[in-house]
Design a protein around this nucleic acid. Structure first.
Length: 549
RNA sequence: GGCCCUAUGGUCAAGAGGCCUAAGACACCGCCCUUUCACGGCGGUAACACGAGUUCGAAUCUCGUUAGGGUCACCA
């Protein structure tokens, strides 16, 4: 077989040689143990929770080892491409604080190993494909989609494995003259790998997460270059990760099924294999079944969901860390205020089985994240969120920032901070009673407090309320007043003889709370009243009283 | 269906042959604290898929079964 002629026929254009590329993209000069990782999303206009999961692993692995983290765009599939998708990806990287060392950013590409868009690397793949043709390891295939479809049907009928292999690899040994003829006719062709694999034999790798993985050798003559000259994932992955000198490939376990293809290709091209880390999937319960989180069916699969709902990116990251590394939670309890980046991440601690997304747990994590934030930080984040998603809230927050911050500061910052908020869309309701335009009172009093006592308290309190009192004095006044209306003056006193009192100071406070806040649950009432100011407090008492007539 | 991966409470998981009478977290339930709530404290319910084998000894190693998941494209 005249491979020289075949290659010239298939690649008439001027191409650099693989040797040249080897010198253009030399091995990296990095300290021992430094890892090169890369995130390689396709620009489909959708960022999945799983994408972020992988990106966090990549980022931690690289930066924890003093290595490099690359963002490469796998835009080889024109059909799935969506305008603005790359912007979405870089935006997400920004939101989640995933800093890359080279690749694609919102400001363009940078780095010595580019281009980082695969479409722009077409000539590189072709150079390597040509090399394979020259060595008899690849060949052109002129089958149409219909041909392949027919073949698949036949294979199905015969209960044989589908695919292009063995006797079904019909163009594998096509005569060069015939190839010349077909190319002259302008017939499109793909470049296929000439597999020498024997499926009765196995190959194995030592996966960084899953340990030893054994798979049968591949015998499929899979496609390297599509008819438009753009590579498939398989070929692009091998060429790029070699040329970019990736040392650890982190990817989802759905790639395990074609791992043997990749192993074969690395060998055929004479490349050193990177390490592989195959991550398990995020799952979701669907009825009584478990399945991979699906971007079509599950809103929470999309990162955009968290943004829209108002979950802080830190919460999503923190939750993902609890899933990614099993010892993270213990570490967090021991180091409540430490930045995420100081957690000693390890691939060895990664879960091998699929993880169910747990909304309850996620909410809890998010509450803790928000509880750790300062009022100032919360204010900033909520305002940013509201600007995009809730104009009414945004107006309220920005009309008087200091007022809003004071509200958000209640119960915050101490040893046992309040954990009311799991996401920003809960903020509006949480603080609504501080704003007349948002106030929607529900004046339901606890059943056990007599109606006449309620009215009496509401009538009297305006006169004894003194905003100058500190918290202790304030409560003292309430206790004293409680005694005057036949309530106990302390909880203790009440509990000792509940029959002798019609209520206790807690009841008095509750009446005031319902009137002032329009609800039975609120943060510390004294703080609320201080922030509102006496005018609003008195007005609320009156409104509540009026509503009872 | 072939191939591959996986299997500890409802969920996330600790566990590397004896330290397991199986940790911790979320959720749930009870009690305590408390001006309500949110916290916090204390306690509780709840698990090694099944069957063989190896071993003095198995959640842990091997094999099988079952179940779940993934994948079988000129998508990634």
């Amino acid at each position: 077989m005249d491979y020289q002629r075949l290659a010239a026929l298939m690649f008439p254009q001027e191409l650099k040689t693989p040797e040249e590329y080897e010198t253009i993209f030399p091995p990296r000069n990095l300290p021992e143990g430094a890892k090169i990782t890369r995130m390689a999303p396709s620009p489909t206009g959708f960022m999945h929770l799983g994408n972020l999961f992988g990106a966090i692993v990549d980022e931690r692995l690289a930066h924890q080892s003093g290595g490099k983290f690359i963002l490469r765009i796998e835009d080889t599939d024109l059909k799935r491409q969506v305008p603005g998708a790359v912007e979405l990806i870089t935006k997400v990287f920004g939101q989640y604080g995933l800093n890359i060392d080279e690749g694609v950013t919102s400001q363009g590409e940078f780095g010595e190993y580019g281009p980082y868009y695969q479409r722009q690397r077409a000539a590189i793949y072709q150079a390597y494909a040509k090399k394979l043709v020259l060595e008899g390891k690849a060949y052109p295939c002129f089958c149409t989609e219909e041909d392949l479809e027919q073949m698949r049907n036949l294979q199905e009928q015969r209960h044989e494995n589908p695919g292009y292999y063995g006797e079904y690899a019909v163009h594998r040994d096509m005569d060069v003259d015939q190839v010349a003829q077909l190319i002259a006719e302008g017939r499109p062709f793909v470049v296929r790998f000439r597999s020498q694999g024997d499926p009765d034999k196995t190959v194995s790798i030592d996966d960084q997460i899953k340990g030893k993985i054994v798979v049968p050798e591949n015998n499929q003559d899979f496609v390297l270059l599509k008819s438009d000259g753009i590579p498939t994932y398989h070929f692009a992955h091998v060429v790029d990760d070699h040329l970019m000198r990736t040392s650890v490939v982190v990817r989802g376990e759905e790639w395990l099924s074609t791992l043997s293809w990749h192993i074969q290709l690395f060998g055929a091209l004479g490349f050193k294999m990177p390490k592989f880390a195959h991550t398990s999937h995020m799952m979701k319960v669907d009825g009584d079944k478990k399945r991979k989180l699906s971007k079509r069916k599950d809103p929470e699969a999309s990162l955009d969901y968290y943004r829209t709902e108002g979950y802080p990116p830190e919460s999503v990251k923190e939750y993902l860390m609890t899933v990614i590394n099993s010892n993270f939670e213990d570490w967090r309890i021991a180091n409540p205020d430490a930045p995420l980046e100081t957690f000693p991440f390890s691939l060895k601690k990664m879960s091998v089985s699929g993880t169910l997304f747990d909304m309850d747990k996620f909410r809890d994590v998010s509450k803790n994240v928000i509880a750790r934030m300062s009022a100032e930080q919360v204010y900033q984040a909520v305002t940013d969120w509201a600007q995009e998603f809730d104009a009414e809230l945004y107006d309220a927050l920005t009309a008087d920032p200091e007022y809003a911050k004071a509200i958000l500061a209640i119960g915050r910052g101490g040893k046992k901070p309040r954990k009311d908020l799991a996401l920003w869309s809960e903020v509006k309701d949480y603080m609504s009673f501080f704003y007349p335009q948002l106030f929607k009172p529900n004046y339901t009093m606890p059943q056990h407090i007599a109606a006449e006592d309620v009215q009496r308290i509401l009538r009297d309190y305006g006169a004894i309320y003194n905003p100058a009192e500190d918290m202790q004095e304030w409560f003292g006044t309430i206790c004293k007043y409680s005694g005057e209306i036949g309530f106990a003056t302390s909880t203790k006193e009440y509990k000792a003889a509940p029959d002798q009192f019609r209520g206790n100071p807690g009841d008095t406070t509750m009446v005031l709370r319902v009137a002032v806040c329009g609800r039975q649950n609120s943060p510390d009432l004294y703080s609320c009243m201080q922030i509102m100011g006496s005018d609003m407090v008195k007005e609320r008492l009156q409104s509540c009283l009026n509503s009872m007539k």
